[in-house]
Simulated assay, not measured.
Amino acid sequence: MHKDIDPDNPPPTRVGCQSLVRNDRGEILVVRPTYGDRLYQLPGGHRHRGERRTAAASRELVEETGLTPPRGRLLVVDEIDERPGVHTAGLTFVYDYGTVPASTAIRLPAPPGTGEPSELDAYLWLSTDALDEHCADYMAKRIRMSERARTEETVFDLLRGDLIEPEGQH
């Protein structure tokens, strides 16, 4: 038993699930939240209690974009350190949702005029060259590493978007 962890009140860990969707021009779908830094990010959100990560990724993609492409494999696991007063530590799992036609309609949740608060207010299809202009640094890195994992048919372990080198390979 770990003496530094109370088994009745373990430290919380957020589990996030995001989706990498590309169009047939090679651009990546990103969405802009109406909260926080309001920078673009991959579609996704938090896993609900008892929900599988894969189910959470698919649910969030449908909720945020209306898209229902088949889910592919895991691309990256990105660890985010705790920021006291801001958020708990977290793990984000990014899954490959393949390629859709560039003409595919995207439906953001709660469109203006519905009386419901909107979680997202915009989306873009971005080339990897445009990520730094529209995304937080860690998110741009996460997206690039997800693309690399897709291309190299591997899974990457990240810490705030940066590759974690395996033990003994420094």
Rank of each mutant, 00 (worst) to 15 (best):
A140V: 06
G98Y: 10
F156K: 04
G26N: 09
T54C: 01
V77T: 14
D96C: 06
R47P: 00
G115T: 07
R32T: 07
L20M: 09
I106W: 03
E153I: 02
L20S: 03
Q41Y: 04
V77K: 11
Y138I: 00
H2G: 04
L131K: 04
V155W: 02
Y40C: 04
V94C: 13
T114F: 03
K3Q: 11
S118T: 05
R38A: 10
P109T: 10
R38W: 01
E79N: 09
N9V: 00
P43C: 08
T65D: 05
W125V: 00
E152R: 13
R32N: 05
L120H: 05
P112T: 05
D24R: 04
A102M: 02
A149R: 02
R71P: 09
E153N: 14
E64K: 15
T114S: 15
T88A: 15
H48E: 15
L158F: 05
T34G: 04
G26M: 05
A110R: 09
H134Q: 10
E152F: 03
A56W: 08
V62F: 14
V77P: 00
G115D: 06
R160Q: 15
E165F: 10
T104I: 08
P11N: 05
G26C: 05
R73G: 15
I5N: 03
A110P: 00
E133C: 00
A136G: 11
D37Q: 12
N23V: 10
R53N: 14
S19V: 01
E79K: 11
I5F: 03
R71K: 14
P109Y: 09
G16A: 08
G98S: 06
Y35I: 13
G26V: 08
L61Y: 02
Y40A: 06
R160E: 15
P109Q: 05
S118L: 02
F93I: 02
R53H: 11
E165K: 12
T34K: 03
R142L: 14
D6W: 06
L61R: 07
T65C: 07
P166W: 03
V77W: 01
P111N: 04
R22S: 13
P111W: 04
E63P: 01
D81N: 12
A110Q: 06
E133T: 14
P12E: 07
T128E: 15
V15W: 07
R107E: 12
G45A: 07
E79I: 03
G45L: 09
A136T: 10
P109I: 11
T128F: 00
D132T: 05
A130M: 09
M1R: 10
A130T: 07
L42Y: 08
D157I: 12
E133Y: 02
M145K: 13
V86A: 12
I80V: 15
G66C: 04
V31I: 14
R148V: 08
E116M: 10
R160L: 01
L39H: 09
D78A: 07
R38F: 00
P109M: 10
G50D: 13
H170L: 13
P43H: 08
S127H: 12
D24E: 10
